[in-house]
Simulated scan of single mutants.
Amino acid sequence: MSTDHHDAARRSLAALAVGDAFGSQFFVPGTRTHLAEHTLPPAPWQWTDDTEMACSVYRVLVEQGRVDQDALAASFAAHHDFDRGYGPATTRMLRQVREGGDWRDLAARLFEGRGSFGNGAAMRVAPLGAWFSTDTAVAAEQAARSATITHTHPEAVAGAVAVAVAAAVAARDGELKPGPFFDEVIAHVPRGLVHDGLGYARLLLTVRDPRTAAHHLGSGQRVSAQDTVPFTVWAAAKHLAVREGSFEAAMWDAVSGGGDADTTCAIIGGILGARLPPPPESWRSRVEALPAWSGA
């Protein structure tokens, strides 16, 4: 993999962390004024499980050049920090992996054998898409492999594929228009609720108000892939073609939509980070450093 793609993945991870940490502030009491006035919450901003798991994805790609599922599962388990906001099912599964359990069996048995359709596979995958930007089909396939370690439900896998392809397309050089951007993402996503939501989101590209888009698409309130990913791709598409101030505007759009704000901001940040300049220093300086073990 070329250095350019390596750099795109690192930029995506860094922007994902800023988005995650920013969005997480809006679960803190007293931040409503910051949202109303678009003033930054006070430092420090801590990132959540979204960033911690994305660091594992990035580290495995640097070490292996692809998704080695056993290595990624081991990294997820070894670096799991309960205080980062993991869901109970993921926490229990990763503890069992640390105790010697087989991630394949454990993931498949979640939710009475249906597998998780949460947004956790999508929240961590944007750096992978940036890494495989030269081939969106490979990005989609590797995203699916990264997802099924913890999320075997088809909708969760579809959500991860959508975000990875979005980041892959974003990382490429050349003109990028919202409509064609959506078309390329949708072409790689299997039929289902995520696919349908993306199609609806494309129809809403003329909508200006993120609250209206979130009302129709969902913004992670249910913490599912299908009520998270369409809105995030909509927000990313609206801002990818604009460079100056685009990251900041996209983040305010995301938190205006409510819902699972750290995850929507992480996904949008990861996609934008694959293409745009880094977030401004006034944002980056408020965020805790990425862990040394990530290699970023």
Rank of each mutant, 00 (worst) to 15 (best):
A292V: 15
T3I: 12
V60W: 00
S219L: 05
G85E: 10
A249I: 02
E184Q: 10
A74N: 07
A77S: 14
V67T: 12
D262M: 02
G197Q: 02
L276F: 02
S246P: 04
R211E: 15
I268E: 07
A235V: 15
A289C: 01
R191G: 05
V185A: 05
A292R: 15
H239T: 10
H215I: 02
V28F: 11
P42T: 15
T51M: 13
A214N: 03
G87C: 06
T134G: 12
G220W: 00
V223P: 02
G174D: 10
A130D: 09
V28Q: 11
G273V: 00
A9R: 04
P279M: 12
D102L: 07
K177Y: 15
H5K: 12
L106T: 06
T228V: 14
P42Q: 14
D83K: 12
G85I: 04
V163C: 03
W252A: 13
G270T: 06
S75N: 08
K177N: 11
G179P: 01
S219W: 01
K238L: 10
A43P: 15
G100P: 03
D262A: 07
Q221I: 15
N119Y: 03
S12I: 07
H216C: 08
H80L: 13
P154Y: 05
A14S: 14
G273H: 00
G259R: 03
Y58K: 00
A14P: 02
A9D: 08
W45P: 08
T136L: 08
G199D: 01
T91I: 05
A126E: 11
T136M: 06
G174W: 03
L217T: 02
Y86W: 05
F117E: 10
H6W: 11
